[in-house]
Design a protein around this nucleic acid. Structure first.
Length: 571
RNA sequence: GCGCCUGUAGUGAAGGGGUUAUCACCUGAGGUUUCCAACCUCAUGUCCCGGGUUCAAAUCCCGGCGGGCGCACCA
């Protein structure tokens, strides 16, 4: 078995066993889309359930769910419409593709604002040549829209919308509700799992770059002046870090999380905490911890909203692949939505340590005088008086918002000293976002679990899935489907399936060895075999997938252990 | 999107203008079998799609779609 062929054998197995398959294949297939088959769909569900439990068990994180279709203005505010609508042009000679606005950067003050005709003209008139081959032969610029576009409504009055490119915006839309839910106290977080859509130019590498994919994102809202810290000193694992090559500590290193934070490689204490919890999650799913690393983004490749970004990369058949992005998005999203939407409540309140006293000298308006004199203008005058930054001695000329000027006399105002007490202030929370690519994680779970061994000189395949993500918890096999063994096995299967959150399979087809082999190949961790002895004393054998070891026990004990989730302790 | 390679049962492969397209494994039915892909009999199932050349195309040509690799792209 040569290693070069391993991925092909793995892919063939995934297809043959109904785990991962190309989508729409009976219509010729469609690149960038996959199906999870009957076995794969259960693995996917369990990975997502693990993810939800992992975060909601923190206590200050809740799950929400939002639409996948997102109206245009939301994605304008988030920056996706701008970022995802770049105009591309190609060199007619060397076929290199470039962003047209970047080519025009030095000859135009604001190339991003140009439409395709305008930017074509700029490239032509300014004699912009290809950075690659120096030719001047640009194809007409075309928008490279990485969002799937759609419209809401029919006929007239349709509204532009897109399939969401990330689930995150849903959490920002619900910020006011989340703030109330958490009794107006930071920090808190919200998670969402679901589909995201990006119209990739060329999907590649199987399920690594999909056009429709499973995402799982967490938005954790914090007070930037009081970021939550978690003591990481008792975590001794050495983690592989690749820091920002432009930073001060740029050498790849192995450190525990606490030291990485202390040495300033991880800049933010809350980000450090999420890196650690991400590591816990992946290892808990059965990802090989030696093949996980954290890579810090260079400042130049940082997302448009982020101040500090880490990728969690996992190594597999496709090399090192970004599977989780952990970003400090700062206040960008909430500020943008506050600016673009009608809501002014995308903020949090922070108490001062002690209330701040403010003393202000003002000219209080005597409305009983101003009203009759100025009539319709009176309101504007009261506002203008309130906005005065220095105390003027009446009479004086007061400039109003509409540009007109009125004369204020002494009887119209009363100088006053106003003392106010300010208990705190409103601010825009910062957001730490761990964003998980579920399909990529599932690929690496399968990759790391896929084990090609030998058994009696024959090739033998075992999918060593963690119990938490196995497609079924256990398989029940009658040694032969006769002499009452089949009936006992069917009854036992039903009994186990009635246990909450436990899934049992039944298989009576072909020889026992073949059934073990099939179960091993899709990663079912345990098998119960009903044999002749069972018909006499209701004892069964329990077989462990990973070493094929078997023990005998009573059905009652097996069900008891299974319910408690500690079947392994019987061995 | 460009270039090179490529597409035959569920999986992996052979064949390469001319009867009914071949093999292994898998899957199903039956038999056999007292725990690890055993064996026997039988069965289901395939030339990616569309044009063209030809008396005849799974085979040759063109285009599309899918896959692999490289370039480009990848908040």
């Amino acid at each position: 078995m040569s290693d070069a062929q391993r991925m092909e054998r793995l892919s063939a197995m995934l297809k043959r066993r109904g785990i991962i398959l190309p989508a729409f294949e009976i219509y010729g297939g469609l690149s960038g889309f996959i199906d999870y088959g009957p076995v794969g769909a259960r693995i996917r569900r369990r990975v997502i359930e693990n993810w939800i439990n992992h975060w909601t068990s923190h206590g200050d994180i809740v799950e929400i769910n939002s639409p996948t279709i997102t109206p245009h203005p939301v994605l304008v505010a988030s920056g996706h419409v701008g970022e995802f609508n770049d105009l591309m042009t190609e060199c007619g000679k060397c076929t290199g593709a470039f962003r047209a606005d970047q080519l025009a950067e030095n000859v135009h003050p604001n190339p991003d604002s140009l439409n395709s005709d305008e930017i074509d003209a700029v490239l032509l008139n300014e004699n912009i040549s290809c950075p690659n081959c120096a030719e001047q032969a640009w194809t007409p610029a075309r928008p490279m829209n990485l969002m799937f576009s759609t419209t809401i409504g029919a006929m007239k009055s349709t509204r532009q919308a897109y399939m969401r490119p990330e689930t995150a915006q849903g959490m920002f839309m619900l910020y006011p509700s989340l703030y109330r839910h958490f009794r107006q106290k930071l920090p808190f977080g919200a998670i969402q799992t679901g589909k995201g859509y990006r119209n990739e130019i060329s999907p590649r590498q199987g399920m690594i770059r999909l056009r429709e994919f499973n995402m799982a994102e967490l938005e954790y809202f914090i007070d930037p002046e009081n970021p939550p810290t978690v003591d990481l000193t008792d975590r001794k694992e050495l983690i592989s870090f690749i820091p920002d090559p432009l930073g001060s500590n740029s050498d790849p290193c192995h450190l525990n999380f606490a030291n990485a934070l202390n040495e300033g490689i991880i800049k933010h204490p809350t980000v450090a905490w999420f890196l650690a919890r991400t590591w816990d999650f992946l290892v808990g799913l059965g990802i090989d911890s030696a093949r996980i690393r954290f890579r810090q983004h260079e400042s130049t490749e940082m997302a448009h909203y982020a101040s500090d970004c880490w990728d969690c990369e996992i190594h597999g058949e496709h090399g090192w692949i970004e599977c989780v992005g952990i970003a400090n998005r700062t206040c960008h999203d909430l500020q943008q939505h506050e600016a673009h939407s009608t809501s002014k409540s995308l903020r949090a309140w922070r108490d001062f340590e002690s209330p701040r006293k403010e003393v202000r000298e003002v000219l209080a308006p005597n409305t009983a005088v101003i009203g009759p004199v100025f009539k319709g203008q009176a309101g504007a005058i009261v506002i203008a008086l309130g906005e005065l930054t220095e105390l003027l001695e009446p009479p004086f000329d007061l400039k109003l918002a509409d540009g007109s000027t009125v004369e204020i006399t002494a009887e119209m105002v009363t100088p006053k000293t106003i003392e106010t007490s300010v208990a705190g202030e409103w601010f825009t929370p910062h957001v730490i976002e761990p964003a998980f690519g579920i399909d990529r994680i599932i690929w690496h779970i399968l990759d790391h679990s896929y084990s090609e061994t030998e058994k009696s000189g024959e090739e033998y395949t075992v999918l060593r899935l963690a119990e938490s993500v196995a497609p079924s918890d256990i398989i029940i096999l009658p040694l032969f489907d006769k002499d009452g063994m089949g009936e006992i096995a069917r009854k036992l299967t039903n009994q186990i399936n009635s246990i909450r959150m436990i899934k049992a399979e039944f298989d009576n087809s072909r020889s026992i060895g073949r059934r073990y082999a099939r179960a091993d190949e899709i990663g079912i961790p345990w098998a119960i075999t009903v044999d002749h002895t069972t018909t006499e004393d209701l004892s069964v054998t329990i077989r462990r997938r990973d070493d094929q070891k078997q023990i005998r026990s009573t059905i009652d004990d097996v069900i008891d252990s299974l319910t408690k989730g500690n079947l392994g302790s019987m061995f």
